[in-house]
């Protein structure tokens, strides 16, 4: 179950994410391997290793699922078989 705040690690690279927004299901993969709290390391699908960047937020098309990459890695993040895309932060002027 994907719940906001859940931290998951990639099995194929160094990537780590935190769930911001969640939806039904838990099919979150990196490099085509399921992400988990403490996964055993394996090789990823070379077709799905475009990388993810620390600080970027990744969302599905419907924006029902959103994750924050908290550690960069070589794998690509997929949810329910579709690659997640980066979300632009609405650039607000720094107010603090």
């Amino acid at each position: 179950m994907l719940k906001p705040g859940l931290r998951l690690k990639s099995a194929v690279c160094d990537a780590e994410i935190m769930v911001i927004k969640a939806s039904e299901g838990d099919d979150l993969t990196c490099g085509d391997v399921a992400m988990a709290e403490a996964p055993d390391k394996v090789d990823g699908d070379p077709e799905k290793m475009n990388g993810c960047l620390i600080g970027k937020r990744y969302v599905n098309e419907a924006e029902t699922v959103e994750v924050l990459c908290v550690k960069s890695g070589d794998g690509s993040i997929y949810y329910n078989g579709a690659e997640l895309m980066t979300k632009d932060t609405k650039k607000l002027p720094s107010s603090d």
Binding site: G55, T89, S95
Partner: peptide
């Protein structure tokens, strides 16, 4: 949850 939501929503990491 309040503070994380506020910061993630208004600040670009790095």
């Amino acid at each position: 949850e309040h503070l994380v939501s506020y910061i993630l929503g208004s600040v670009d990491f790095m």
